[in-house]
Simulated scan of single mutants.
Amino acid sequence: MCKAGAYQVYIQSNCNIGLVMHLLNHSSIVMTLAYLGLNQVSTEEMLDSIDFG
């Protein structure tokens, strides 16, 4: 599975990192997050775009 495909699974599965980790056969969540390019900055940007009401 390519990085773009893995990212789409992550987004479309409501950010189910465990599923993506399993599909990529990674041994840690940190490895999967790094592979997807998700770091603290991108996480904060995603959270900023969410309307919590």
Rank of each mutant, 00 (worst) to 15 (best):
I29K: 10
L33E: 09
E44G: 10
T43G: 08
S28M: 00
M31W: 07
S27I: 00
V41A: 12
N39L: 05
F52M: 07
N14T: 08
L38W: 08
Y7D: 04
K3Y: 03
V9F: 09
D51P: 13
Q8D: 14
D48S: 14
L47Y: 11
M31V: 06
C2I: 15
H22M: 02
N16A: 10
E45K: 13
M21L: 14
N16S: 12
Y35L: 03
N25F: 00
K3Q: 11
M1S: 07
S13E: 00
V20F: 04
E44T: 14
K3R: 14
V41W: 11
V9C: 09
M21I: 06
S28T: 02
F52I: 12
D48I: 02
M31D: 09
L38E: 15
I11N: 13
I29G: 09
C15P: 09
M1I: 03
E45H: 11
H22G: 02
Q40E: 03
E45Q: 09
H26E: 05
V9T: 11
Y10G: 12
L19S: 01
H26R: 08
M31A: 08
Q12F: 05
I50Y: 07
G5N: 15
N14Q: 07
N14M: 04
M21Q: 15
N16K: 13
H26T: 00
T43N: 07
Y35G: 01
I17Q: 04
N39F: 05
A4G: 08
I50L: 14
S42P: 07
M21C: 14
G53I: 04
V41S: 12
A4N: 15
M31F: 04
N25P: 02
T32L: 10
G37R: 02
S42M: 07
S49L: 08
V41K: 12
G5Y: 10
C2K: 15
G37A: 06
N25Q: 02
H22F: 04
V41Y: 14
Y35H: 06
V30H: 11
L33I: 01
C2G: 14
M21V: 05
T43I: 08
I50W: 13
E45S: 15
L24D: 03
L36I: 00
M46I: 09
M1A: 07
L23K: 15
H22W: 00
L23A: 13
S42A: 11
Q8T: 15
L33F: 03
A6D: 03
Q12V: 01
L23G: 08
A4T: 04
C15V: 12
A34S: 06
M21D: 08
M21H: 11
S13N: 00
G18H: 11
I17C: 04
I50R: 12
I29V: 12
N16D: 12
L47C: 13
D51M: 13
N16P: 10
V41M: 09
V9Q: 07
M1G: 08
I29S: 12
I17A: 07
L38P: 09
G18R: 04
D48R: 10
L23Y: 06
S27M: 00
L38G: 11
